[in-house]
Write a protein that binds this DNA or RNA. Structure first.
Lengths: 239, 239
DNA sequence: ATTGTATATTTACACTGTAAATTAAAAACA
DNA sequence: TGTTTTTAATTTACAGTGTAAATATACAAT
């Protein structure tokens, strides 16, 4: 009732197809991704791919899902690289630096998930939501820690409308307005790092070509200064 | 030696072609722009377009150029809507609000110039530089005004490397490090509004779908707070 | 009227994604 | 073992794309 093995290798053809797709994207960009090109590279015919992906969009979705996973791994690794209490600020900075580092390591993957480089493709949010949520869990987690420590001043921060947060925020916005504030801050921070990184990756910061790092770290500092307040330590009684 | 008029109208066919292209972009997005589709809509054949644009990329470049012009018009209008000295901060805010307003009015044009939605297209910077520079002249102009008034604290702001600023910054980086600082600040501000606006336009802020304005105005305020310092007015002697 | 030139059409080619029919191969069952 | 069933691949075909080359047409200049 099944036919798991073929005479040749390539039993994990779905994975091989995705690898070829990534190589092709890395060479000629994500927009010129071609099923026929992949098939040509693998020595098979184009319609054979349809046994593994119902259409080209499904392949793109799989690539995006993998990219989110890779991105999420790096974010979570960065967060875990600065463990323990009392180092929440360093932890946030580490995830911030990891954001740009991953983007520079995989510019095409970055544009694939955070830009819209593929012609008629619209990502199926419902399917991608889990990997998406996981990938931003590092940032939202650290923000949550800082919030719990009273290191964030919530005043003036616009909140999302819970009625509109369909599914997306159910996981994290389940709590009260604390979580909503944390989500909002995470969004504002994401917007800032995304703005800078996407401009750098697409080569729109020519004057800073060799010093995007300085600009980015300046922005990280500015972000911290804006949102973080170090709680006034109660002056301990002199010994 | 020439043949200026045809029996029919459509003498400004280049303009008509661009209009059809914009309409097509407005309906099905910039990525599905098709020469054959335009020709079909205009009742001509596809190769006829090649008499007006050497290839599809040239048409896209012309569209981008027009989009920059439209964007620049709105920016400059916004700047001029708050004239006179003493209102530099309001002027900056007006250009900031106009940035998002134009983007929401023309999301496809915005993505055409600030995203990269067209398959294999790479914009010819050299050709687009004039309209690009004009379109950001409003922001850099206001920053320059504020800088001249001593309302900007340049310390800590990373400067671009003049060696790398090829052509782009010759116009504005001709001066000393003042201009470079202003350029750098303009870039940091652009990065922030671009990050937020691009996320909103591409529908990646679902939770804030109905209140992008609040989020954006919060960001404008934060930008002003970060870069602008009101010079200490000398306390005038009590009457 | 003839020439010259700009503008359009026709034709053709290589490329894309994908649907339908067909063939080949391996596994399951007799 | 032989036969059937299931799955995977190929072949073929179609509609779409950008664009190059050759061709026809209509106007302006001579």
């Amino acid at each position: 009732m099944a036919r798991p093995r073929k005479k040749e290798q390539l039993e994990n053809l779905a994975e091989v197809i995705k690898e070829a797709a990534w190589r092709q994207i890395g060479e000629s960009g994500a927009s010129s991704l071609s099923l026929r090109g992949i098939a040509r590279e693998l020595g098979i015919t184009a319609p054979a791919i349809y046994n593994y992906f119902p259409d080209r969009d499904a392949l793109v979705t799989a690539l995006i899902s993998d990219a989110y996973a890779s991105f999420g791994d790096r974010q979570i690794d960065a967060m875990n690289s600065i463990p323990g209490p009392g180092r929440e600020l360093d932890r946030m900075r580490a995830t911030g630096l990891a954001y740009r580092a991953w983007a520079l390591d995989h510019p095409h993957r970055y544009m694939l998930i955070f830009g819209n480089p593929v012609p008629g493709y619209v990502p199926p949010m419902q399917e991608l939501m889990p990997v998406m949520m996981r990938s931003i869990s590092a940032l939202t987690g650290v923000i949550g820690e800082l919030y719990a420590l009273g290191m964030i001043d919530p005043q003036g921060i616009p909140l999302p409308q819970v009625a509109n947060s369909q599914g997306c925020c159910d996981t994290m916005a389940g709590g009260g307005s604390d979580k909503l504030t944390a989500l909002s801050i995470a969004l504002l921070i994401w917007s800032r790092v995304h703005g800078l990184v996407s401009l750098e990756i697409t080569g729109k910061l020519p004057a800073f070509a060799n010093d995007g790092a300085a600009l980015y770290e300046f922005e990280l500092d500015a972000i911290a200064r804006q949102f973080i307040r170090v709680p006034q330590a109660a002056p301990d009684p002199a010994p």
